Amino acid sequence: MAAPQDVYAGIAPVTDFAALAAGEGYTALPDDWLVGTADIVSSTAQIAQGQYKTVNMIGAAVIAALANALQGAPFPFVFGGDGAAFAVPPSAGAAARRTLSELRRWAEEEFSVALRAALVPVATLRAEGVDLRVARYAPDPGQGAEAADYAMFSGGGMALAEARMKAGADAVPPAPPGSRPDLTGLSCRWANLRAQNGLILSLVVLPVPGAPAEGFRDIAAQVVEIASHLSRSGHPVPPQGPPLRWPPAGLRLEARATHGQGSLPRRLTGVLLFHLMAFVLLRFGLRLGDFDAGHYARQVSVNADFRKMDDGLKMTLDCDAATRDRIETVLRRGAEAGLIRYGLFDQAEALVTCFVPSASRDDHMHFVDGAAGGYTEAARRLKSS
């Protein structure tokens, strides 16, 4: 049997998302692992001010900072739009706590955003009657050892950890003033993605506590099946990669997020020059050393996380109004039966925030959300379902 710290690394990735939606392929994490959660306190206000790209950048920063702190060691995480959650073995507990502390201080000082964060043992969550199981989903079955994969969670543990955090439990305090996480590889260079089929649908479906688990799984399977009839199952990122614009819309945002202890003007100049070179390479599909621009852009689409299981089903779909109505009919019936809660939110565009440790490898990660509120707005609408 694998040692506790090797549990996640030893899980074989699954390439069938429908099987994961049906509850197959999950492994229980050990009791001594720790669950970290972080989200923006005022995300609704940020959305109202048109700052959802900033919200997404901060959410993705949680993942990038911890990945850098763990020096590339695999760990399960999930991007939630206005935050993120993850699990780490006890050997990484100190690094996780330090990183969350630095993120809180960075968000406050760089963006005037209140980021809350918490860290709780899996055993504490199980003592309250939930479980924490994880699977690995590989979006591209054709990739080799460098394949990107994303964690999927079930059992209610992640949802409880988030609820505890919002109630003030398990809090991780901010680091001292001036502290900064390592956000190397975090970027938002791509232009927003216009819906090709009518609308971008952000969808959040959660099981009702105490309801039969098979009821939620059946509804999730129906939604996934309906989406499978869309072009590329509703994938909002074109096969050739997201559109390019010059200058990048997120240029200053990326510089602010990643300048660390250095000068913002110097970092802005560096980001500008880097993206100018990347723009030329990507625009003309050129190669530079180990970097193949055409392959990289296509891999952005392949690796994009437009659907996930996070103690529920979350999807960002490029779909038509008729498909949206079919999905809502299934969800409304499930809610009326007391099996699920759901939230839907329509918008015209999706956005992509990236974490690219190395552009010459295929394991770069791309977090997809609706551009006008996305998962955050869909989750806010859960109360009315």
Rank of each mutant, 00 (worst) to 15 (best):
M365T: 05
L264W: 05
L29Q: 06
A21G: 14
A211P: 00
E377M: 13
G36Y: 00
A304Q: 02
P236T: 04
A379L: 06
C319G: 07
R136A: 15
K166E: 06
H229A: 14
E328N: 13
R232Q: 14
L276I: 10
L206M: 10
T37Y: 07
A372K: 01
V41R: 07
C319I: 05
V280A: 13
A38C: 11
L203T: 01
A127M: 11
A163E: 14
R133G: 07
G198A: 08
V302R: 15
A227W: 01
G72S: 09
Y342N: 01
A87S: 10
D325A: 15
G343N: 03
L230M: 14
I58R: 00
A2T: 13
A19G: 10
I40L: 15
T124W: 02
A213W: 01
V330W: 01
Q46H: 15
R283C: 12
L119V: 09
R332T: 14
L276D: 09
H259V: 08
G289P: 09
F111I: 06
D318P: 02
A335H: 15
V120P: 00
E254M: 09
A161R: 05
A60N: 02
V330C: 06
D369V: 07
P89Q: 07
W33R: 01
F274D: 13
Q5V: 09
L186N: 03
S101F: 06
V208R: 12
F367G: 01
G234T: 03
H364T: 05
D292H: 13
G155H: 04
I226T: 12
A84R: 00
T37F: 04
V280R: 10
P4Q: 08
A61H: 00
V130E: 12
P74I: 10
T54Y: 01
G373W: 01
L272W: 11
L115V: 06
C188Y: 03
S358D: 15
T353D: 02
C319W: 01
S358V: 06
R332V: 14
A257S: 11
R136I: 11
L119G: 00
R252C: 03
S91D: 14
P121R: 06
G80N: 04
R116C: 04
I219P: 00
V356M: 04
T376N: 07
L268T: 04
V205C: 03
G198L: 04
V352I: 12
A167P: 00
S384D: 12
G210F: 09
T54N: 05
A378D: 03
L244R: 04
S91N: 12
W33C: 00
V205E: 00
L276N: 10
V237I: 15
T329D: 12
G215I: 08
A73P: 01
A171L: 12
A48Y: 08
Q5Y: 10
L115K: 00
A2D: 05
G10A: 13
G157E: 06
P238Q: 11
D318K: 02
L339H: 02
A12Q: 07
Q49D: 15
G144Q: 09
G142A: 13
Y150G: 01
V14N: 11
F79M: 08
A335I: 03
L351R: 03
A73K: 13
